[in-house]
Design a protein around this nucleic acid. Structure first.
Length: 657
RNA sequence: GCCGACGUAGCUCAGGGGUAGAGCAACUGAUUCGUAAUCAGUAGGUCCUCGGUUCGAUUCCGAGCGUCGGCACCA
């Protein structure tokens, strides 16, 4: 006698078990039409599922967020049926719903091409129009394996073999087509609707392992209705416009060419952006108690052998030899071994700890060619790296300080939101489990103290210790790890770092490897996409364009531009014989944040008309007031937080100078 | 690294077995104009590289390099 509780709190009792379909019908015809699936005590199940005990039921309709996942999963099944229909002999493997869509991996000798899409989509629409009912079937394990093997579907057979013995093997049938699937599904293929589109083909390793065969993956997107699909496609087009590679070219920030794959040629505009970020970081690190150092690029193999990099990291390293000497050197892929060398100079006392050693460390790593991506993933990059040499007891407080600093810096750069992942011990690791227990516990405690909530990234820690990953999302929706904090008990041991403790004995320090931006290259790529090139004034590579309306104002404009430069602003003077409309358009397209327009009126009255990028309003200010205002606005956020310069003359503060 | 697509003017892209075109940008000239494109003209190409097929290849074929999208790998 199940008593079923509905979301409004009402309870319905039934004589015997009921299906979701029957329950919905009992509640009302509108719901019966709209219900696609239901949540049974929080678990999403088919409408055909029999409810035989007391339970809470929430129906899922097209309007609910859960509907998207169902539509996409069902669309993947429809895709698979269409493909097997059109290309006999193609094996099916897996096809899940993913963010914004779905994919299905096929095993087929011939690759798919985007030219196949119209044909496949047409067949998919036929299958949707047919509206075959999704029927769930429970199969015996051996029968299921035999079934797929008889059809030559060896991937499916392998999947079933690897399912735990306890798992119920379920198939879903849509008309004549049948697939191994956990479910749940909607009522029938018709519920997929017409708001789907195949997007791209790609290779993907079977089970995500590069030692396995490469399958053909077809990606699609699916939505509740056409307008959602159109909005998504529009969003993609917008994202493409934000792409840092495109903006990098348009704003003349940088380029990359064949002779230096994975390395960046920074142009004047881009380098100005870079230096602005670097100066800001240098100030923030100094203020946070870091000491900056600089260590060699080329370091002898023996140090890499001692650190373990030669063994664990060699295939990622650029190795250099010289003609006249029997030496092997390597371009540093990381800064840590060099920092330990500085730490080891002289005797360190516990009083020196925590010792925060920072370097804008230029590193080279031989990254796989397929991994390279604009300036986000390169082979030559500069980390805002630092190593904190400390005691075990200092791990937690140092982590709290670090997270605070990172959050403040991300905020200043316009990233109020970021994800944190906790990567714990990997299968291949150095150090005993006792040490790992300690390191992980210390880091977890630190997270709790710093009120950092994280997602567990199991087994992804560094070989020497657990790490926190601070992840930002780019315009295309890809996540990039930028900041990191890694607890390391191993490197100090390998490279023999020690300090004299209170007890007079020598102890090993702990090393915290940490970066906030991660690499300047990646972070600046993120920054470009975050702002779509329309940087706030302090970051903009060109801050003000002074443009004349008529050539009579040339002299006045030149004087204004010079005064703005003296005030520390990056200025372009546009005296060209062009209409002011054209000048405004060009500087706007170049994302110059402030346009200072001067014509006869301004020249005569000693004023300037300011126009902000993206706005149409103009503001006419006196020359000096405008310069002072812009100089103030262009102040980096960390300096802007301090009292303005005029306070230096405040007698109350003069004692400190 | 793997799978696939792509590589033509500075940029965006057409084209196609008989050595190439558009728009924008550039350059020259005219125009002095008030908040997102003034007009006219000129110039610009080893059609990624190397090899093959062919009377002839930028076009077809192969290899290499690079880029792009995924996968794998990672800041």
């Amino acid at each position: 006698m199940p008593a079923i509780t509905l979301p409004d709190g009402s309870v319905r009792c039934f004589e015997g078990s009921v299906t979701g379909t029957e329950l919905a019908a009992a509640i009302g015809p509108g719901l019966a039409r709209a219900a696609l699936a239901m949540k049974l005590d929080g678990t999403l199940v088919d409408l055909a599922h029999e409810i035989d005990r007391d339970a809470g039921v929430v129906f899922v309709t097209r309007r609910d967020p859960e509907a998207l996942g169902l539509i996409r999963h069902d669309a993947a099944h429809v895709l698979a049926e269409a493909v097997q229909d059109l290309y006999p002999g193609t094996q099916v493997t897996i096809g899940p719903a993913i963010e914004d869509g779905f994919y299905y991996d096929f095993a087929r000798n011939e690759p798919f091409t985007p030219e196949d899409f119209p044909v496949i989509e047409a067949r998919m629409r036929e299958i949707v129009a047919r509206n075959a009912v999704f029927e769930r079937e429970v199969w015996d394990r051996e029968a299921a394996i035999a079934f797929f093997e008889a059809r030559g579907e060896r991937y499916k057979a392998e999947l079933i073999r690897d399912l735990p013995e306890s798992e119920t093997i379920t198939f879903y049938k849509q008309g004549d087509w049948i697939d191994l699937c956990r479910g749940p599904h909607m009522r029938g293929t018709g519920d997929v609707g017409d708001a789907f589109k195949l997007m791209k083909v790609a290779g993907a390793y079977w089970r995500g392992d590069h030692r396995n065969a490469m399958l053909s993956r077809i990606y699609g997107t699916a939505w509740r209705d056409r307008s959602e699909l159109d909005a998504y496609l529009h969003r993609l087009a917008e994202a493409e416009r934000r792409d840092h590679r495109r903006i990098g070219r348009e704003m003349d920030l940088f380029h990359i060419q064949e002779e230096a794959v994975g390395s960046i040629f920074w142009h004047p505009n881009g380098w100005r952006l870079y230096r602005t970020a670097e100066s800001y970081m240098r100030r923030r690190l100094n203020a946070a108690g870091y000491q900056e150092v600089r260590t060699p690029q080329l370091v002898d193999r023996s140090l890499w052998e001692a650190s373990g990099h030669w063994e664990k990291f060699r295939e990622h390293m650029f190795i250099a030899t010289v003609e006249h000497e029997e030496k092997t050197l390597a371009l540093k892929p990381m800064n840590c071994p060099c920092h330990v060398q500085i730490f080891r100079q002289g005797i360190k006392s516990y009083r020196d700890l925590p010792l925060r050693m920072a370097e804008f460390g230029s590193c080279h790593r031989y990254e796989p060619s397929g991994a390279l991506h604009g300036i986000m993933r390169v082979r030559a990059f500069t980390q805002d790296d630092a190593h904190i040499f400390c005691t075990e007891a200092q791990i937690a407080p140092e982590t709290v300080r670090f997270v605070d600093l990172l959050a403040s810096i991300y905020r200043d750069f316009g990233f109020p939101e970021f994800a944190v992942k906790f990567a714990d011990r990997p299968a291949q690791r150095a150090g005993s489990d006792v040490v790992w227990d300690r390191a992980e516990a210390a880091l977890k405690e630190a997270c709790a103290t710093a009120k950092v909530s994280y997602e567990l990234n199991r087994g992804e820690g560094a070989f020497y210790g657990p790490k926190l990953e601070f992840v930002l999302r780019d315009a295309i929706g890809r996540d990039w790890q930028c900041g990191t904090l890694q607890v390391d008990f191993v490197m100090p041991e390998r490279l023999d770092a020690e300090y004299v403790a209170e007890d007079g004995a020598r102890h090993r320090p702990v090393m915290l490897h940490r970066a906030i931006l991660g690499s300047f290259e990646r972070f600046l790529g993120m920054l470009i996409e975050q702002y779509a090139g329309r940087f706030p004034l302090w970051l903009a590579p060109v801050q003000v364009a002074v443009a004349t309306v008529v050539s009579d104002a040339d002299e006045y404009a030149a004087g204004l531009a010079e005064a703005l430069r003296r005030a520390g602003l990056e200025v372009r003077l546009d005296l060209r014989n062009e209409k002011i409309n054209a000048k405004i358009r060009e500087h706007s397209l170049a994302h110059v944040p402030v346009l200072a327009v001067v014509g006869r009126k301004e020249a005569a009255s000693g004023t300037v008309a300011l126009r902000r990028l993206g706005g149409e309003a103009q503001e006419v200010l006196g020359r000096d007031a405008a310069i002072a205002r812009l100089a103030q606005e262009a102040m980096p956020p960390d300096l802007g937080r301090q009292p303005p310069a005029s306070n230096w003359l405040d007698p109350a503060r003069s004692g400190k100078l």
